[in-house]
Write a protein that binds this DNA or RNA. Sequence first.
DNA 1: CTGTTAGCGCCTTCAC
DNA 2: GTGAAGGCGCTAACAG
Lengths: 336, 336
Amino acid sequence: MSRPTIKHIAAEAGVALGTASRALSGNGSVASETRERVLAAAQRLNYIPNAQARSLRSERTETIGLLIPAVRNPFFAELAHEVEREARASGLSVVLCSANEDPELMREYVLVLRRQRVDGIIVAPFSTAHDPLLTVRDAGIPLVFVDRTIPGMDVPAVVSDTGPALHDAVHALVAGGAQRIGFLSGPSQTTTGVERLAEFTDAAAAAGVETVIQHGDFQEEAGRRGMQALLAADVDAVLTADSRMTLGAVRECLDNGIVPAGDLPFIGFDDIAPFALLQPPLPLICQDLEGMATTAVQLLNAQLDGEAPHTEHRLPAHLRLSPQTTTTEAEVLRHD
Amino acid sequence: MSRPTIKHIAAEAGVALGTASRALSGNGSVASETRERVLAAAQRLNYIPNAQARSLRSERTETIGLLIPAVRNPFFAELAHEVEREARASGLSVVLCSANEDPELMREYVLVLRRQRVDGIIVAPFSTAHDPLLTVRDAGIPLVFVDRTIPGMDVPAVVSDTGPALHDAVHALVAGGAQRIGFLSGPSQTTTGVERLAEFTDAAAAAGVETVIQHGDFQEEAGRRGMQALLAADVDAVLTADSRMTLGAVRECLDNGIVPAGDLPFIGFDDIAPFALLQPPLPLICQDLEGMATTAVQLLNAQLDGEAPHTEHRLPAHLRLSPQTTTTEAEVLRHD
DNA sequence: CTGTTAGCGCCTTCAC
DNA sequence: GTGAAGGCGCTAACAG
């Protein structure tokens, strides 16, 4: 037989279709004895409700979309994991769309999500092609930005507050004797790129230390090139602004026989798995991924409940000098 | 206004609902002039078809499920990426379910996928609790195993053929002077655990080299413990059977001041990003992830087309001595 | 409390 | 080539 429907189980239980529906969904009142019979029938026939049909009626799919640049990027894999966990806690399923850093693909995925009538979308915006997201917002589909935001789009966003951590990092490097810090910055088209650069230059100015800035596009290759340039510019310490570029910079160092944080003072960005293999441990600026995911899902849920949450939420990042260092130690260091 | 439906665009174009449907879906014949009008109306109203309603009729969601132990595991993140790419090429969307290594969660996700009426499921089985998968198969839902298989379940599977690569690896270690090879093996409840162990012991016997075997559960912690034991057992070379345990073993080595493949001959498993940061480069047994993903989607598509594909597909893995080494070099080595 | 009925948005016969 | 009508599985609103 084809998949059993509510009709089948109603017949099996000897009740009307509507009664079976009420018994199964829990909405509306059913005599407990009747409900038992219906549930038993459902069990017997291995009934599994059809989510399509249900959402056709209810205008709700209990499904959200998560749009990220790439699952292969450990930072976003981790984010996806946390978002999924948090969404499940609210009874939401997640359709994960990994756009492979391709704006065209992103446009396509937005369409897929809209066709699937997801209840809302959490997106880590990575392209400068914003029009698909504008369309989503204008269609009234609940939207949340995570990791990055798009200025002027008036969409709730959850991002990291990296200022204090970058400040701590600069001071830690200076305390270690740095006089000329190289900074691998993200692209100036992104909010994170702009902010972190400003935060770094502020901290460096305050500490009275010389700086060399290299811009990149948040990709590993840019990290390599940037690192080459920094080495050529003869910096005596390095600070980075995202995980991919850190990866590239580290590899570039290693290829040149330089051990990051060993031969050259180095503070990286994001606590992703690869860095755990470095010897000595790489000091890192760590974002609160779990908090970001939790907040993002909450912001989406708030919109699903008809609220209009504040536009920007900032979660503190912190400097971690070694895997054993606690936040407290970093705090102490900050207040030196 | 709420989201436009076919009815709205039919009205806008001044045709009947059925005609609009035909024009939009391309099924059935419509005068080209009429089609133009309908398409224009759809464009004007920003019409986006409702996938739920469509699949309610068509009994097809054009969506497949991908069930993996964890996205945070780079091997599976990579697999997810490749599956998604290949699925998209066949016009299928992927619902990614990352079960966080939890059998209970896996059971839950299977239910979600069935409620969503996905057309089929690709799963990397990781639990010994097979009953949810049995239920899927018995319900006649197309199913494909990837990475691992479950003996006796008669489900098409695509796995790696690691025999030749493990053989090469043993020979490479012996050629390097190894006399007592430690092997970090997976659990004996998994096909990959059993097979790779057998392949290793065969190769070791053929090479006449002593072996020390440590079993683990494919988790990083097991890799650490296993490595401790191997060090205590005084092995002079190490070979591993999966990426997670390799990670753990490498970290354990580093924590003890031993450089894998530097101080101690070491061949790891799977070409995941973290290993790229190791100095010297870690020799690796590399699986053909792209091939596995492609084949898995093909096997699923074949079932969707009513075919009954062969049960087991094996794709060759190969030994890569360094990132620059080509397959050819490894081939040469094998035929020594 | 339960049965009946009317759609949700779409596709697909059937007539014309 | 086009219009009208029925139904996919389900929920909700209304009678009884």
